[in-house]
């Protein structure tokens, strides 16, 4: 769909609007060093196990609004855990009050979990399919580097569940399922925990008001052909929110409850994913060292910046092969993290302004007609009647010189052919 040189990238306008069918593409074979590979698809794309011919995809304004919600949630959490930024953590208690259920001990007490607000969620997420329990059943879950705790909706769904496509996980049908005890140190690994009848409770509340509450449990998790015994996850008995038709979420953050950390002995704390160029494509999620191949450009993970998130050091931006004049301090003041769930890259205001100006200059030089802003996107073009367009390349530069030369599929976000926008947005200031 595209070609590129150092300063311009050729984009087929038709590639911005993939068809409704899942193309018969070759699977991405496992890299030599990766231990386990799963297929990644867009939750709402035609290759998704959750796809429904009559299902309604979220509208662009809904996706971008949810994305903004996720970003604000991340900003709140970063601010709360690092003391940086203008926003402050907001308390948002959840009262799970799980009731007695088959297979679970009863308790006369009503647990109250002080849920941590600010976990981020977005409708623009990608999903993978995992196995859970013995025998294993398949569950399609969002994978998320911006949170730690994995969870699925569980039977008997004591309080409430949203509608998911696959059957609910049923602990009673798994011979290896067990609730985590309140006295188990693993219960303390949770950001928000409680106790009922000796069983550990978890709760996660997301920034958009979505939440999941239930028993913290352990069972065998199967990813690709690997079994991870005793994997701890949330067995959700009270779940509500914008989770689509997924069965739950896989947390890949840096916290103790994340899959990354729980499977550290098996995979060395390493994983890699590749997101496809279009929502009708497929990518992969690999676990194990070396999973990204030998051509990866590396930058330090700034692990001391705060919990959960993957902080890196962005140092500059190039547009059309030319360095955009942005002081490095603009990036170092705010900090940078890489996130699988945020759709549109957010930049400090000064950096975004310089980027959009340089991009607009390049587009203007080619005579492309501008279009109105859309939601958080303010640098937009009308490609009506055009089959191919030539875009200025955009590169993000990180500490150590690692460079992410954004693929042509990731430079713009298409609302329609008449409104295709630079897929970056401003944080509104330089401190957030």
């Amino acid at each position: 769909a595209a070609g590129s040189s150092d300063d311009r990238a050729l984009l087929s306008v038709a590639s911005l609007f993939p068809g409704p069918a899942c193309p018969a593409t070759a699977e991405h074979g496992p890299s030599a060093a990766a231990s386990a590979r799963m297929r990644i698809v867009h939750q709402h794309g035609p290759c998704s196990p959750l796809a429904d011919a009559h299902g309604k995809r979220p509208a662009h304004d809904e996706i971008l609004a949810a994305d903004q919600n996720r970003v604000e949630s991340i900003q709140r959490r970063v601010s709360a855990t690092t003391g940086r930024g203008k926003l402050t953590k907001r308390a948002a208690p959840v009262q799970p009050a799980p009731k007695k259920s088959p297979g679970h001990s009863a308790s006369s007490s009503t647990p109250s979990l002080p849920a941590t607000s600010g976990r981020a969620l977005s409708t623009g997420n990608y999903v993978v399919t995992v196995g859970l329990g013995t025998p294993a059943s398949k569950y399609t879950v969002v994978f998320d580097t911006g949170s730690d705790t994995t969870w699925v909706q569980c039977r008997p769904c004591v309080v409430k569940c949203y509608r998911q496509k696959e059957p609910l996980f049923d602990p009673a049908k798994s011979s290896t399922y067990a609730n985590v005890s309140c006295s188990d140190p693993a219960c303390d690994d949770l950001d928000s925990n409680g106790c009922t009848g000796g069983h550990c409770l978890y709760a996660v509340q997301y920034g958009d008001g979505s939440y999941t509450v239930g028993f913290f449990a352990q069972d065998t998790l199967t990813i690709a052909h690997d079994a991870i015994k005793g994997f701890r996850f949330g067995c959700g008995e009270k779940n509500s929110g914008l989770f689509g038709k997924t069965a739950g979420l896989m947390g890949l953050g840096r916290g103790k409850t994340s899959l990354t950390v729980q499977a550290y002995d098996k995979y060395g704390g390493a994983f890699a994913y590749c997101l496809p160029a279009s929502s009708s494509g497929t990518g992969y999620l690999d676990f194990g060292p070396g999973s990204a191949g030998n051509n990866a450009r590396l930058t330090p993970m700034l692990a001391d910046k705060g919990p959960t998130f993957y902080y890196v050091g962005m140092t500059g931006i190039r547009v059309g092969g030319q360095q955009v004049p942005i002081a490095e301090s603009v990036f170092s003041t705010a900090g940078t993290l890489v996130d699988s769930g945020t759709v549109i890259t957010r930049l400090p205001a000064t950096a975004y302004t310089a980027l959009s100006k340089a991009f607009a200059t390049g587009m203007s030089a080619s005579g492309y007609k501008t279009a109105p802003a859309y939601s958080i996107l303010d640098t937009c073009y009308d490609f009506t009647g055009l089959s191919d367009v030539s875009l200025p390349t955009v590169s993000l530069v990180f500490q150590g010189g690692a460079c992410l030369d954004v693929d042509v599929s990731g430079i713009v976000y298409a609302i329609s052919q008449a409104q295709v926008c630079l897929a970056f947005a401003s944080n509104g200031d330089d401190e957030s």
Binding site: G85, V338, S340
Partner: peptide, 30 residues
């Protein structure tokens, strides 16, 4: 905080390695 979003990550192998404390970007991975 600046956030590198998933639109910009498309087609890259994005590597996270807690042991080596590195994040990596491998072009043309899918």
């Amino acid at each position: 905080v600046a956030i590198v979003g998933n639109t910009q990550q498309k087609t890259y192998g994005v590597l996270y390695d807690l042991g080596r404390k590195t994040v990596g970007f491998a072009p043309g991975s899918c």
